[in-house]
Amino acid sequence: MSVRQARLFAVLGFGSTHDALDAESALQGAGLEVLPIPAPKSIGALCGIALRLPPEQLHSARDCLAAEGISIAATSEIEDV
């Protein structure tokens, strides 16, 4: 059995699931590798949806969401496989 290498991802948290879904749509439209994940405790929420993406795309994601008027409530990092 091969061991998968953990990777570091940026995590974006939002004030509402509505915003998270708006953000997912906007980031996908911008061609970013965004994936919804259960919001981790590190972004301050206990339930709901957060978005993860490669850390090198974080800057582009911020620009994209700012252009769309979608506020990021919190950012964090997560290790995942």
Partner: peptide, 18 residues
Amino acid sequence: GTGGGSSEDPLQPLARPE
């Protein structure tokens, strides 16, 4: 329950539409 925001908030979150 609204799903978004923090479940630890004691009051209803103000974010719309939730």
